[in-house]
């Protein structure tokens, strides 16, 4: 696997209320692990939603695997974990296995049936993420951390080449959070999956990500974590002390 996975050129998302994103240009290559960071309301979620075609792009262009995001249809190559907590209807009667199985629909054509092999695949993914034993539970009955893992399993079950994770650790306690980051890094390293991860734990993500994208409506930085730590713009932004803390937390 090589080549460009994501490419944006002067991407802008402007609506009646004003611009959420302006002039974003970057390229992500296969195997990269990009941490997308920035303050609240900086357009991080909008950026990944624009890449997935979930929000409209008002200027510039964005491509996934070389095809334009607004007409993209190779969903089998993508896994997406949305900002999750507000997303689950607590009375929805689906089991963990049923929920994760839906992630396989992207590999199928009409009529999309879930076969026995699919169920084995689901079980294997649940096993990998250590949630096999809750497979028959209703998603509404799970803790925040468990729900997060279920949604991650749903995003990963189709063996995507690109995994897009939006604030995946928001509901996790620090310990689980650390384990979660390690797991994503492992997936990135061992399977060569390209990862885009939106977060505001700049320090923690820096330990794992190969590239950092700092966003505040515009793209203020895109490069390696080391460059991020030595960037004078970033130290101007954070103050040297904070930058130091972020970059040297071991």
């Amino acid at each position: 696997m090589s080549g460009e996975v994501v490419r944006t050129e002067q991407l802008g998302c402007c609506y009646r209320e004003g611009c959420v994103l302006e002039d974003i240009s970057f390229t992500v290559n296969a195997g990269d692990y990009v941490g997308i960071v920035g303050p609240n309301g900086s357009g991080k979620s909008t950026l990944v939603q624009a890449l997935l075609g979930l929000v409209a792009i008002s200027s510039g262009s964005a491509r996934l695997f070389g095809s334009r995001c607004d007409g993209f249809n190779q969903w089998g190559r993508v896994g997406y974990l949305p900002q999750s907590l507000h997303l689950l209807n607590p009375i929805f009667p689906a089991t963990v296995a049923e929920t994760v199985g839906l992630g396989l629909l992207s590999l199928k054509r009409f009529p999309r049936r879930i076969t026995r092999q699919d169920r084995e695949k689901v079980d294997a993914t649940l096993d990998t993420l250590g949630i096999y034993d809750i497979r028959a539970k209703l998603i509404g009955e799970l803790s925040g951390g468990q729900q997060q893992r279920v949604l991650l399993a749903r995003a990963m079950v189709n063996d995507p080449e690109l995994l897009i994770l939006d604030e995946p650790t928001a509901a996790l306690d620090p310990e689980t959070r650390e384990r979660f980051y390690r797991m994503i890094a492992e997936i990135n390293r061992s399977r060569g999956v390209t990862v885009l991860l939106v977060t505001h734990d700049t320090g923690v993500i820096g330990q794992h990500a190969t590239r950092m994208l700092y966003l505040d409506k515009r793209m203020l930085f895109f490069g390696s974590f080391d460059d991020f730590c030595h960037s004078p713009e970033m130290s101007a932004l954070f103050g040297e002390h904070s930058q130091h803390l972020m970059c040297h937390r071991h």
Partner: peptide, 23 residues
């Protein structure tokens, strides 16, 4: 309903996720 069962389940569960699953 049988032919579209999983698609219906997916959009009922969450429309955004369904769209990203190609529904």
């Amino acid at each position: 309903l049988g032919l579209f069962f999983n698609d219906l389940l997916a959009i009922t569960f969450n429309e955004e996720l369904a769209r990203v699953s190609g529904v």
